[in-house]
């Protein structure tokens, strides 16, 4: 290979590295500034310190506010609730939409698509009144249900797509082998679309874990129901100067579980496009 050819080969890499550089710099700054007393622009000034991480030990806003652990638990519960409900309901709905013929099926399908494209922000005020009427305003359950509702159209479409990819023959074979409809769904179809379920579970969990708008709107301030994102916002109070060091530390703290989650599930996620029905030809 001549030098010239070698240089040409490097060009795509150069372009790729340059395009992700801003993001890498961002993460680098995030980590760095959470351990530094101060930063100026992107550059750290001063000494290494752990003081920004003190929120782990004592509530930074005084006794009226929940501790970080309480907030983390809230966030986890909401994310887990969302994952379970979204996956279960989407998997059942998607199966029905993919396999059964019932009146209104077409209409339901288009409606879900429209809802998926619908900007949920515009529904916030209406939802507020519904929640208040149901006595669910300022509760974790209320927040969880609203988030589940907003995630459902996406989940249903994703699951329907995966069910569509499973051959009818496999389902028929299971029925003839002696399975009931529910057994077919649980023992034969669901295991073959595992990558799809994993993907939806991960999306749902992350969207629950990172949710800000809905928890912020349907809970009062940073009270006992606060989630991590809402909690994080307290550091950017309107009256005092923003403590960027603490903001980055809390941000990093919020990032850790998601990163760990990704490390363990990335194989499944990468499988999404190669999964589905094998075995047949």
């Amino acid at each position: 290979m001549t030098v010239r050819q070698r240089l040409w080969r490097g060009v795509p890499y150069l372009i790729l590295v340059l395009s992700v550089l801003p993001i890498i710099v961002g993460y680098f700054w995030l980590v760095l500034s959470s351990f530094m007393t101060r930063t100026e622009g992107l550059l750290p000034v001063g000494n290494l310190t752990l003081k920004h991480w003190s929120f782990l030990l004592e509530p930074p806003f005084g006794r009226g506010y929940p501790s970080i652990w309480r907030v983390t638990l809230n966030t986890f519960l909401i994310a887990a609730f969302m994952t379970i409900v979204v996956v279960l309901v989407s998997a059942l709905t998607g199966y029905a939409l993919s396999r059964l013929n019932f009146p209104g099926r077409k209409g339901f399908l288009s409606l879900t698509l429209i809802l998926h494209a619908f900007p949920s922000v515009t529904l916030l005020i209406g939802t507020f009144f519904v929640l208040r009427a149901l006595n669910l305003y300022n509760t974790s359950l209320g927040v969880g249900l609203v988030m589940v509702g907003f995630e459902m159209p996406f989940g249903i479409w994703l699951m329907k797509g995966f069910f569509d990819g499973v051959s009818w023959d496999m389902e028929r074979a299971a029925l003839i082998d002696g399975a009931s409809r529910l057994q077919v769904w649980w023992q034969v179809i669901l295991p073959t679309i595992k990558p799809g379920i994993a993907a939806l579970a991960i999306f749902a969990f992350i969207s629950g874990w990172n949710a800000w708008l809905i928890p912020k709107t349907f809970t009062i301030g940073a009270g006992q129901q606060a989630t991590l994102s809402v909690y994080l916002q307290n550091f950017q109070g309107e009256t005092v100067a923003v403590d960027w060091g603490s903001v980055t530390a809390v941000g990093l703290f919020q990032l850790i579980p998601v990163a760990i989650f990704f490390i363990f599930t990335q194989d499944l996620l990468l499988n999404i496009y190669s999964g589905g029905a094998k075995g047949g030809a």
Binding site: M170, A173, L175, I176, G178, K194, A277, K278, G279, G280
Partner: peptide, 20 residues
């Protein structure tokens, strides 16, 4: 009568084996 109660066996063109 539902398929499971007909005591039949069936072989498909796609084999329809359970991949998992």
């Amino acid at each position: 009568v539902s398929p499971k109660d007909r005591n039949i066996g069936m072989v498909f063109q796609s084999y329809a084996l359970y991949p998992h």
